[in-house]
């Protein structure tokens, strides 16, 4: 009877749902992040058009330029999918190529953002200039910080891959990094639409 009640689950992979705990935990964290960005975006929306002095968003936003950087980030998500595929197949070459592409595209996006920030700053929009300056820089700055951490994370994985320490058995690492990366990408789409396109 005792044996019948006991289930031999000494395996550390055991979970009651069969889902991997890291993946589940990370989804939970992403849920939390949604509220974080949701609040930042809401604040931006509440203060939209409320600035007393310029520069105003219509005067300085360069939509074609931001469209290009948005495209870059979107493409990085595609590369992320291919990178995961490479790792799962156990191809070190494909892993390194596609992880490298994600990193490059992510860094390019950050480059665009640095350019945009310094350009706006020279146009007279500082953090302390008006409500636009405060809410725009804090929102996009926190998004950029997330992209930056993603790039650091992916670079770590790239180095692991280069040293042959990213076998298919560790594909979950890449999958979770990918979850994060896609999430950050989606947040940018929302920001791009609400902040840039709908003025």
């Amino acid at each position: 009877m005792a044996e019948a009640a006991a289930v031999a689950h000494d395996d550390h992979h055991y979970t009651s749902t069969g889902l991997n705990s890291w993946k589940l935990g990370f989804w939970t964290l992403i849920g939390s992040e949604c509220l974080f960005f949701g609040t930042l975006i809401s604040t931006y929306m509440v203060y939209k058009g409320q600035s007393i002095v310029g520069p105003f968003s219509g005067e300085i936003f360069d939509i074609p330029l931001t469209t290009v950087s948005t495209f870059v980030l979107l493409m990085s998500s595609l590369a992320m999918v291919l990178a995961l595929d490479g790792v799962q197949r156990g191809s070190r070459k494909l892993s390194m190529i596609w992880l490298g592409v994600v990193i490059l595209l992510g860094a390019t996006f950050l480059g665009f953002q640095v350019y945009e920030f310094s350009h706006f700053y020279h146009e007279g929009l500082g953090l302390d200039t008006n409500l636009l300056g405060s809410s725009f820089y804090v929102l996009t700055g926190f998004h950029g910080t997330h992209v930056f951490f993603g790039v650091v994370w992916l670079t770590t994985l790239w180095v692991m891959s280069a040293r042959g320490k990213l076998p298919p058995s560790k594909a979950l690492n890449v999958e979770i990094a990918g979850l994060y990366w896609h999430f950050v990408d989606i947040v940018w789409i929302v920001i791009f639409v609400l902040v840039y396109l709908i003025q």
């Binding site: 203060y47 302390d128 200039t129 409500l131 804090v138």
Partner: peptide, 21 residues
């Protein structure tokens, strides 16, 4: 974070003179 930016970096989130609420 918004309050910290107001305090440390002179942002305007809660500054009524800049339209903050």
């Amino acid at each position: 974070i918004m309050l910290a930016f107001d305090r440390f970096f002179s942002a305007n989130f809660f500054n009524v003179a800049a339209g903050g609420d």
